[in-house]
Amino acid sequence: MKRCLSERTMWLVHEGAAPERDLAHLEGCLDCAARYGRLNEELGEITRALRDHASPIGRDVRRGRRRWVTAAAVLAGIGLLAGGEAVLWRQSNALVDPRPETTAEALSLLEEVTLLLSSPGVTAASVLVADPATVIAEMTSPESYEDDPIAAGGGGGGGRL
């Protein structure tokens, strides 16, 4: 009986480059057939492992997607922080910068209202129903102080507050 096939001849069979007599031996020898089956199986395992390991599709793509999601989340977070900061900054600026012309107007109005309310004989109701110009004129005229005991009496301890 012919000797069993060498490892190289076995591989040549796998490559389709072995002579006829080796193929004939392989068909008749159970031991060589088993070895040939193992060669096929192992080559398949190696090839699959290398293909999967080196393939850019799959794990790397998933990893890439995960990176994108993380980057997007970080960017969104930074955007939110920046937006919130801008809103806070605007509000604080509004407090620091009271807009002078508006304040002047408001102060003069407040002054007038205070004057009006503190003047004797003028009630809130009368202010509300009366013409503001008339009320102010009344307030500022010297006669308006006549009924005021403090102002009219001219007592030493008093005066208009």
Partner: peptide
């Protein structure tokens, strides 16, 4: 070494591919 796999994966399935590579 496969940096992307979890420790369990690296210990099991991926280890084979890594060693062949």
């Amino acid at each position: 070494v496969d940096g992307g796999a979890s420790p369990e994966q690296a210990a099991a399935g991926a280890e084979f591919g890594v060693r062949i590579a």
